[in-house]
Every structure is written in C-alpha cells, then in structure tokens.
Computed example of a mutant assay.
Amino acid sequence: MSRTSSRRISLTAALGAATALALTGCASSGSAGGDGSVGFITGKGGIDTAAVGHRTDAPDISGTGLDGTGTLRLADYRGKVVVLNIWGSWCSPCRAEAKGLQASSEKFGDKVQFLGINTRDTDPANAVAFEKNFGVTYPSIYDPDGTQILKFPKGSLNPQSIPTTIVIDKDGKLAARAMHALSGEDLDKMIEPVLAESK
C-alpha cells in the first residue's frame, strides 16, 4: 500500500470517528457512564468520576486559539485543575450551559483554568460570535474536524457527545466527566472535590 493511500485511509477513519461523535452530540442525557471495571463510576446527574489512583492521563491537547493567535496547550496548565468544555456554536445544549460555565470560571478565578474545545464550526467566526454573545472570556482551541477530541483514549473519561465537560486534576489526569449541558451548581459539584485534593 502506498504512503498516500495509507494517509488517506487514516484521515478517512479520523473523520468518520469525528462524524460519529458529532452524531451523538447535543444529547441532553449523560447515561453512557462507566462502571467499576474501567475505574470510574456514574454518580447522580450523570457525572462520571474516577478516584485518585484510577485516573487516566489526559491526552496532549493543543491547537490554535479561536482568536487565531498562538497555540493553546492543555499541558501548559499542569499543576492546576482544568475544566475542559467541548462545544459548538450550533449546539443548543451548549448555548444553555454557556453562561453557567462562564460564571463558574469567574467564581473559581485563578484556582481553576477553564479551556474550551470548539468543534464542527466550519467558520471560526460563528464560534467567536457565540463567545461574544454569551460573554465567554476563557480560551478555546479551534478543532473543526475533531482531531483533538479523538486523542482521548477509549474506555477513559473520554468525550462521547457534545457538549462534554471534563475536569482534569492538577497532575493532568481525567477526574470527572459530564456528557450533557451542566447547570452552574452541577459544574461546581464536579470541580470542588478535585480542587480539594490540591490542598
């Protein structure tokens, strides 16, 4: 098989997986939780958590910021709790949770880093308009084809729908996940136990 054919097959597989993720997206239920056999449990409200010692490393997420300037890297926030939100401007549940995410980012301030991954917006201007409309001030990586999302290992607290919100501990490990629109209160309940580990 030629190198070009191999590259084309890999690209086709990646795009197919991104499409499958997108088709499950904008679901309002977070019922696809885990069980003890994979090291995480589903709690109330469809929030999956992994205990310290049973967490998977977050993948090497990076990409151009929505503002088009510079590269954002998840690894740059090692040592801090990170809230990673996967969203699209076309997604109704993403619109429903946007103000709550922003409010939580302001509430936790420098204690927690918020970072978005914008996906399936073919024109970044739509995503920028979304952020402006909802007053979102934390940065987002522009990932229109889902390349960064596909880096999450299967069987971990990986995203399987849009929106998905993942809390990453200070050691860069996947600690909690919700695969539905979150209220500010539910988001705080995801963040606070992981933040408390840092003390």
Score class of each variant (00 low, 15 high):
P144Q: 12
T137H: 12
P144I: 09
D143R: 09
D143P: 07
A75M: 07
F40M: 12
Y138W: 15
S105Y: 07
A20S: 08
K111F: 00
R55I: 12
R95V: 01
I117W: 05
N133V: 01
C94P: 04
I86W: 06
L21A: 04
Q148H: 07
A98N: 01
Y77E: 11
A127F: 07
D60S: 15
I47G: 08
G46C: 12
E106A: 12
Y138I: 09
E106F: 00
F134A: 09
G88Y: 04
Y77L: 08
T19P: 00
S140D: 05
D143G: 06
N133M: 13
G45I: 10
G46K: 11
A127V: 06
G100T: 06
T137W: 08
F114P: 03
D143M: 08
D145F: 14
F130D: 02
T19M: 10
V112G: 01
Y138H: 13
A20K: 12
V82A: 02
G25K: 08
D67N: 15
S105D: 02
C91G: 03
C26T: 06
V128S: 14
P124H: 11
Y138M: 05
G100Y: 04
N118A: 12
G65V: 06
E131G: 08
A20D: 03
A51P: 05
S37C: 06
S28F: 01
G30C: 13
G88R: 01
A51L: 15
S89D: 04
G39V: 08
G25N: 06
T49W: 06
K132P: 00
S62K: 15
G53D: 11
V82T: 13
R78M: 11
C26Q: 13
V82H: 02
T42S: 15
A32C: 09
C94R: 02
C26G: 13
D60T: 10
T147H: 13
T119W: 07
S62Q: 15
T71G: 05
V52G: 02
T69L: 05
N118S: 11
V136R: 09
R120E: 09
A22H: 10
F114Y: 09
S37T: 15
W90T: 02
T119R: 04
I61N: 03
H54I: 03
W90H: 10
T71N: 14
S62P: 01
I41V: 15
G34L: 09
G88K: 03
T64S: 13
G100L: 06
T56R: 11
K151P: 07
G65I: 03
T71W: 02
F108T: 00
I41R: 15
R95S: 05
G65Q: 02
A103L: 02
P59H: 03
T119Q: 09
L74K: 07
P139G: 08
V38C: 10
V82W: 02
V128F: 01
K80I: 02
T64W: 03
Q113K: 15
R78T: 15
T137D: 10
D57P: 11
D145M: 12
S105K: 09
T137G: 11
Y77C: 00
A51S: 15
V38K: 14
P139K: 12
K107A: 10
A127P: 09
A32T: 11
L21K: 00
G135F: 14
T119P: 05
A50K: 03
K99Y: 03
Q113M: 08
F40P: 02
